[in-house]
Design a protein around this nucleic acid. Structure first.
Lengths: 214, 214
DNA sequence: CCTACCGATCGGTAGG
DNA sequence: CCTACCGATCGGTAGG
């Protein structure tokens, strides 16, 4: 009985935690990680500030845990569906398309959580910036790996450095995020798709599979 | 005598105003326009909060006046030096290069003021977002005009819409801002230059002047 | 998980 | 331009 109670309690605690960070992640994507205040979060959750506070213990922990929750959502929404796609150019395109689809599906209210956090903390040194930078680096490395594989298998040209291509593809995604939210321009993701497909076609060799047309 | 005194006072008032908004613009480029608090600004300027407050009258006016000050700086640092360059592809490249050079010169402490403000307010409707969006639109229209001129004079291909090219070039600049500040990567502007030159060469016709090599 | 607090800071005002 | 305030909200604590 004591065990059952504990399990029920733990399960409930887990659901509460999930609800907290799901809410936190969406507030942060709109108002910023600094604009995510404990009072606002408590009001949204209809909890007392101090009751909520017990779940993390400091503002910085709230921010770091919120980043971790956003990371899990990102992996689920962007990376998972592409894992089955074979390596090479098809996979590289699938990764880009998946990212743009995640933007279109408005997985986070205010656009990509990591894009927003990147620009918010890019000039504020500290643990938050470091964790955001590490998360971004991980995604870029994942993209870059797909580029290296495409080069190794002879599907894209090797006279251009993988990190240069990574930079270009990611910049176009960030540009889509920018136009979609600042101008409420729903055509922005497709503009990015067109630019990315154009670039990939220029990089493709004869051995590459066909890319979709928009 | 009364006139001389008034003039001296006005001149001093103007210098004070300039100092206020110069300081405000740099705080905002690092901490964000929302993170620009009257108390912080007063401390930096060694003025009392209420004495400072008299210069604008509300937080929103402070933010709007700070945007206006940033706009003047942007025009001075990015646009002015390119005004003499002839229209066409050379001018289009000069505009891109000038923007990247303004990033490298660190005209604003935290990167381009308008890039930072764009991402901060892209999901927060209101007058601040509207003014930021209008400022960005103005710069994009300026870029796009150079693209149209290049197409009209036959220096770049016409089978691609000017706003698509504008989007791609601006996205690469924003990407440079991102990598330069989040990763302290000083090679980021040159990576953007390489990408832009690559793209412009692909768009150039036989009638186009030679572009620089990096 | 709660109520009841704390000092610090927020945007803003009164009065000079 | 200043001092001296205002109520609201910030992150955080005590005690239950």
């Amino acid at each position: 009985m004591a065990t059952a109670t504990r399990q029920r309690r733990t399960a409930k605690g887990k659901r509460t935690q999930e609800l907290i960070f799901q809410t936190a992640v969406n507030i942060a994507s709109v108002e910023g990680l600094a604009g995510l205040t404990i009072g606002r979060l408590a009001a949204e959750l209809k909890m007392s500030k101090s009751g909520l506070f017990g779940h993390f213990g400091s503002k910085e922990r709230l921010q770091l845990d919120t980043i971790e929750a956003a990371r899990r959502i990102f992996i689920n929404e962007v990376v998972k569906s592409v894992r089955q796609v074979d390596s090479g150019l098809a996979r590289l395109w699938a990764l880009c398309d998946s990212w743009l689809s995640y933007l279109e599906r408005r997985v986070f209210t205010g656009g990509c959580f990591f894009v927003a956090a990147s620009f918010e903390f890019d000039s504020r040194p500290g643990p938050i910036r470091d964790v955001i930078a590490a998360n971004n680096r991980e995604w870029l490395a994942y993209l870059e790996e797909a580029i290296r594989q495409s080069q190794a298998s002879g599907e894209i040209k090797t006279d251009i450095e993988p990190d240069q291509i990574t930079f270009e593809l990611y910049a176009l995604k960030v540009g889509a995020n920018w136009a979609l939210h600042l101008y409420d321009d729903p055509t922005a993701p497709d503009r990015a798709r067109r630019a990315i497909l154009d670039r990939l076609r220029m990089l493709a060799t004869g051995a590459a599979p066909a890319l979709p047309t928009l």
